[in-house]
Design a protein around this nucleic acid. Structure first.
Lengths: 243, 243
DNA sequence: CAGGACCCTGCGGGATCCCGCAGAAAAAAT
DNA sequence: ATTTTTTCTGCGGGATCCCGCAGGGTCCTG
């Protein structure tokens, strides 16, 4: 059994290396990669390696790397070891995990023991391990209360990218009016909408821009999510040349 | 001489601690704080301590902490030790450094030796040390080419927060039209403006929202900058109750 | 099958945004 | 002091956004 570490911080890398050797004495080899690209390559070479990776790397972000790795070998077990439990990350991960796959998500702030336990649970016991905090985020993200539909999240991303109503309509195969309906829903859920009665804030905020702002502040969006979305968008733009 | 570490990652904290003891044998005490608040408190107690801190901490971000520390004791020497050289961070730092203050900005990716050298330069030789990469960012940020005026940056932040033209005008003591002029400048500099001739992208983008998007993608804005701006905004809103 | 809950759609109007045009005021240069 | 450059400002119009209203689908549920 081999384990592959994908993590750009050298300190964290060596800490992980040590932790893995201590927690998994039956493992006979720990590889390291310092960014997503190198990680993907190594994963391709080493058929059947377990993986521990960071989200948020500069070269190629963890979610993208995980997606391509899982696309090539869906049974790969991946432990995400991240600083944050941003809703954007949690949603990004649960969006790409294949059905029935074994994976984990533990925070870097977790104790030594929790990390080692997670390592054993995932790689030996074939059991998913999600940190309490992350799990909480997941529920909030998927629950109906204060939770966002896929449609709502989609349109949030679209306006964050700066698309017009018309462009969104084209992209999502909707009428302009439907796009605006979804926007309205979004504004309500983000608490950005003021229902004419209370005029005390009236006119201060541009709803569209404000929605993006609060989404960022609530970490519903973050840099890497935006980057991914931008990449998707340019791909789509290339396929759909100026009508 | 005492040194205060403000850093939320325990691994990095202990690494820093070791590096400081090695580089500064004349130092007789290394304190640690794991977030901005605790750091400020310790800095207040320990009159005349040198400080090494991370930007980007969850509790209270480094720039805010540095600002209050410098406000109370402007001659404090601070070494910022950060993962990133986002333009938002660089600008944020250079915005708050007092005139004549001694400070440094080195990246975590720098070598051991560079860090130790920087420690000695700042705390012993009273010499500023800015990483090459950061310096480059600084120049790009301040140079006329592709550089943003204070006014332009200000309005960028305002639309990122979701303010209306009218609200911005009130806040900055301008007419609405002037606000729109500045916006136009901003759009040009961000490369978001399409001059009617080339209609091939025409209508796809909402300029205002798009500007915010590319600002985020270029790291001209980031989460902590937005958070600071939001705090300033709510303070201002409290002072200016709905006219 | 009738009723309801949901989403999509077109219409229309008021508010906002984007911006060219042109004069006034301020700042910088000569 | 005069010219030049920059910035601020009002006006006006076209495009876009925000959203209430009303009709038409789909999918359940009784």
């Amino acid at each position: 059994m081999k384990v592959l570490i994908i993590e750009d911080d050298p300190l964290h890398r060596s800490y992980l290396n040590e932790a893995i050797r201590a927690a998994l004495p039956e493992c006979d080899g720990v590889l390291e990669a310092e960014n997503g690209n190198a990680g993907e390559r190594l994963a391709r070479d080493l058929k059947s390696a377990h993986i521990v990776m960071d989200l948020q790397m500069s070269q190629r972000n963890g979610i993208e790397a995980a997606r391509t790795i899982w696309k090539e070998r869906p049974e790969t077990r991946i432990l995400f070891w991240s600083n944050y439990s941003d809703e954007a990350y949690v949603r990004g991960v649960s969006r790409i995990v294949p059905v029935g796959a074994v994976y984990g998500y533990v925070l870097k702030s977790a104790s030594d023991d929790r990390l080692k336990l997670a390592l054993r649970s995932i790689f030996i016991e074939s059991q998913c391990v999600i940190d309490r905090e992350v799990r909480g985020m997941q529920q909030k993200s998927l629950g109906t209360v204060n939770g966002f539909t896929e449609a709502e999240y989609e349109i949030l991303v679209d306006i964050a990218l700066g698309l017009t109503d018309r462009a969104i309509a084209q992209r999502r195969n909707l009428s302009v009016r439907s796009v605006q309906n979804r926007l309205q829903q979004l504004y309500v859920k983000l608490g950005v909408y003021q229902p004419l009665g209370s005029q005390h804030d009236d006119g201060r905020f541009n709803l569209r821009a404000r929605a993006v702002a609060v989404a960022f502040l609530r970490k519903l969006l973050n840099h890497s999510a935006l980057e991914r979305a931008e990449a998707d968008l340019t791909a789509w733009l290339a396929r759909h040349p100026h009508d």
